[in-house]
Design a protein around this nucleic acid. Structure first.
Length: 260
DNA sequence: ATGCCGACAGGATGTCGA
């Protein structure tokens, strides 16, 4: 079972690239982030024609997450618990029954949080705290859980081209990195790191300043596996080539293969 | 120190992203 995640940076702008990528890599489940459209505007029929069911939690202009699945989805639920009226579309969860059992998948678009020292950074940390609480609450069921998407957190110095440049950025603050580490401390596994030890694996390259050409990237899109999902991890990867195509997203897809 | 690029809404240019 191949499960992938991609921050598309507008599904309207990325529809052709997305269809091409789906044809080439044939993931069974796909989590998308930053679809930047309402539920009605999501190109559902295009993906249904390719054999996918669609669950969409959209928002006009900003944010928005979706899950595509070749198999039916159950328990589809948007939004993290808590948040006091937080209306950003940043979380969507679904349960999917596979050949050897079920998997629970969440599409995650965590807040950027810049600039630091503002309400935006506070919102980022609060959002991650809500995510950790929910992640913890999912554990007693002992299901395979895959929390995947754009976490907007650089885990460590090996995940960025030049750590010094990011010392005042919300993506690299100690509190941000601790939020991601909190999931690991709960028992979740970073699927990319579990399969690839080498440094300088990136999932995002800024559009500006020739970052892609110079390979000045950062690793901020993550696949976090519950213990029962990690037990079934076969391999994982990053579709880096997608950044070099026409009209690319600034993020590239990440994926894992689970024996489920 | 700032812009660089790209997408959005709206109909010029400001906002946002990371």
């Amino acid at each position: 079972m191949r499960i992938a995640s991609w921050n598309v940076n507008s599904i309207k702008a990325r529809l052709a690239a997305a269809k091409e990528w789906l044809s080439e890599t044939a993931p069974d489940i796909v989590c998308m982030q930053e679809i930047k459209c309402t539920d009605d505007a999501f190109p559902r029929l295009e993906f249904e024609d390719m054999g996918y069911n669609c669950a969409v939690h959209g928002q006009k202009s900003y944010n928005g997450v979706a899950i595509l699945s070749k198999r039916p989805m159950e328990d589809v639920s948007p939004r993290l618990p808590g948040g006091n009226g937080d209306d950003h579309a940043r979380y969507l969860e679904a349960a999917i029954t596979c050949d050897k059992g079920m998997v629970r998948v969440a599409s995650i678009y965590a807040p950027n949080g810049n600039p630091i020292g503002t309400d935006k950074f506070r919102y980022k940390l609060d959002w991650h705290a809500r995510l950790a609480t929910h992640a913890q609450e999912l554990l007693p069921a002992e299901e395979p859980v895959v929390l995947m998407g754009d976490y907007n957190v650089i885990p460590g110095p090996e995940d960025v081209y030049e750590p010094k440049n990011w010392l005042t950025d919300a993506l690299y603050q100690p509190e941000s990195r601790a939020a991601l580490r909190r999931l690991e401390n709960l028992g979740y596994t970073d699927a990319i790191r579990a399969c690839h030890a080498e440094p300088h694996l990136y999932t995002f390259w800024d559009y500006t300043a020739g970052c892609w050409q110079k390979n000045r990237g950062i690793r901020i899109d993550h696949i976090m596996l519950s213990p029962q999902a990690a037990d079934r991890l076969v391999t994982s990867g990053i579709n880096k080539h997608m950044r070099g195509r026409e009209r690319p997203s600034d993020h590239v897809p990440v994926w894992c293969e689970l024996d489920i």
